[in-house]
Amino acid sequence: MNLIADLLLIAGAVGAAFYCFVLSRRLNRFTNLEGGMGGAVAVLSVQVDEMTKALETAQRTSRDSAQSLRDLTERAEAAASRIELVLASMHDLEEPEGLSHLPRSNRGAVRRNRRARLESENGALE
């Protein structure tokens, strides 16, 4: 009976050793840096570092663009206020004597009649 128990104990130890050997080989392949999961983790780590650098660059560019846009907006507002002042000062000017009888909408418009235009084109052709 002791002999059978010893044989079963030896068979169990050999089976456990074989299981540990197989598990060790699988674990080595899993953590292999060239083709296993370790390689994938290393590649992902490098990609995360590259994406972090790209994000920092994009944030810096965005900050610079926002500042530039802020400066341009301030310049545009200053120019708009100067234009408003010029327009306000133009309303204070006296009207020329020859245009006072025309309505305000026609004062700045230049109109040519069709006959004068045709005469000038005929004169140019001759």
Results as ranks from 00 to 15, higher is better:
M1H: 13
M1I: 05
N2Q: 05
N2W: 09
L3F: 15
I4D: 03
I4H: 05
A5H: 06
A5S: 15
D6K: 13
D6Y: 10
D6Q: 08
L7N: 07
L8S: 11
L9T: 14
L9R: 14
L9W: 09
A16T: 02
Y19Q: 03
C20A: 08
F21L: 13
F21D: 06
V22T: 00
R26E: 02
R26A: 14
L27N: 13
L27D: 00
N28T: 01
T31H: 09
T31D: 06
L33P: 08
E34T: 04
E34K: 14
M37K: 11
G38H: 06
G39Q: 07
A42E: 12
V43H: 13
V43D: 12
L44S: 09
S45C: 06
Q47T: 11
V48T: 02
M51P: 05
K53P: 00
A54Y: 04
A54N: 11
L55C: 03
L55N: 06
A58V: 04
Q59K: 10
Q59R: 07
T61S: 05
T61R: 01
S65P: 00
S65D: 03
A66V: 15
S68D: 11
L69S: 15
L69T: 13
L69D: 05
L69I: 01
D71Q: 04
L72W: 08
T73S: 12
T73M: 02
E74S: 07
E74D: 13
E77V: 02
A78H: 01
A80N: 10
R82T: 03
R82I: 14
A88W: 01
M90P: 03
H91T: 13
P96V: 02
E97L: 02
G98Q: 08
G98N: 14
L99G: 10
S100A: 14
P103N: 00
R104N: 06
R104S: 15
N106R: 04
R107N: 06
G108P: 03
V110R: 11
V110I: 09
R112Q: 08
N113F: 10
N113S: 03
N113A: 06
R114G: 10
L118I: 09
E119Y: 08
E119V: 06
S120L: 08
E121I: 12
G123I: 07
G123T: 14
A124P: 02
E126M: 03
